[in-house]
Every structure is written in structure tokens, then in C-alpha cells.
């Protein structure tokens, strides 16, 4: 199954302003935690930054926060054995149905950006950025103190 529409919420990465503070990782983790509260997420749910769906990549002076690009022609959709990965027809976001995911990691191997992660703590399923469907602005963009992540609304609707 191939995706058809361009994602409406596009997160633009600006490495020239990323200072690798990782506040985006923290915000994403809290947003996708059970409690959705920062103290509980870290102190009771024992979440760690490695589990965040957005990951700051850093080498030398270069750093940027990378999350699922929600490709228009997503390879992960093609590789998914069960159809757990699908494209939301309205938002264009590439989402994962955790009920259907069998943890084969085909998507992880096919993703050219390496932004699909293994969630081994709860169930052996893949986790990835869902663009925070219930928020107007994704948590990582909200949390970035330097606007190294900005949101661009894609108006070319199909």
C-alpha cells in the first residue's frame, strides 16, 4: 500500500539553530507517556530519552532533531507485512496501528531516516512520530526553545 497524499503538518528541521538541548525529546516522551505529566513520566513510568520518538542526532558541530518525515511515498508502508502502518486519509500522517504490529521490524530496515524505533518495554512493536494528532502544534515544535523545529502547514490538498 502506497501513501497518496502529502502530509498536512510538516515539521521543518533547521540544524543551524539546533543546540542539542533535547527538550524536544523530553516533550515528545511526556506527550506519549501514560500520565502525560513530566514528573510522573520520568519518575514513575521510568521513561528514558532513548525511547523518544524524536531523536537528536549529533556529530561534531552539527546537530538536529529528527523524527518521521511522513514521506509522500513512504517505504515503510510498502514493507509493512500486516498493514499496521497506514496513512491517515485526512492528515496524511503515517501512523501505526499497534494492535496489528507484529514486531517484525521490516519498517525499521526500510526507513531511510532511521526514525522508527523499537518499543521493547511494553510490547514488541514499532513506535514512531504520530505528529501529535490531538494537538494543533506537535509537542516537539512547541518545546523547541530556539525554533530549530518549526511547523509548516501544507496547503496543497489533494
Amino acid at each position: 500500500m502506497k501513501s497518496k497524499i502529502a502530509v498536512k503538518k510538516k515539521i521543518i528541521i533547521r540544524p543551524e539553530y539546533c543546540m542539542a538541548c533535547r527538550l524536544c525529546e523530553i516533550a515528545c516522551l511526556v506527550k506519549h507517556s501514560k500520565s502525560r505529566q513530566i514528573l510522573k513520566a520520568f519518575k514513575e513510568e521510568n521513561l528514558t530519552l532513548e525511547e523518544s520518538r524524536i531523536q537528536v542526532q549529533q556529530q561534531g558541530e552539527m546537530s538536529f532533531a529528527l523524527q518521521c518525515r511522513h514521506c509522500e511515498d513512504a517505504w515503510c508502508l510498502e514493507s509493512c507485512l500486516t498493514g499496521a502502518l497506514h496513512q491517515d486519509e485526512i492528515s496524511g500522517a503515517i501512523l501505526i496501528d499497534e494492535e496489528k504490529c507484529i514486531g517484525c521490524w521490516s519498517c525499521i530496515m526500510s526507513c531511510p531516516y532511521g526514525v522508527i524505533l523499537r518499543n521493547q518495554k511494553t510490547r514488541k512493536v514499532a513506535t514512531k512520530c504520530d505528529l501529535c494528532p490531538d494537538e494543533k502544534i506537535p509537542a516537539c515544535v512547541m518545546a523547541c526553545p530556539n525554533e530549530a523545529l518549526i511547523l509548516r502547514e501544507n496547503k496543497n490538498e489533494k
Binding site: L39, A41, F42
Partner: peptide, 13 residues
């Protein structure tokens, strides 16, 4: 009680 050991302070200083 508030510190979550996220190391933001470590990276920022």
C-alpha cells in the same frame, strides 16, 4: 523531587 535527570542543564552549561 523535580529533577528528572534529563541532562538539559549538563548540555547547556
Amino acid at each position: 523531587n523535580l529533577c528528572i535527570q534529563c541532562e538539559v542543564c549538563v548540555r547547556q552549561c
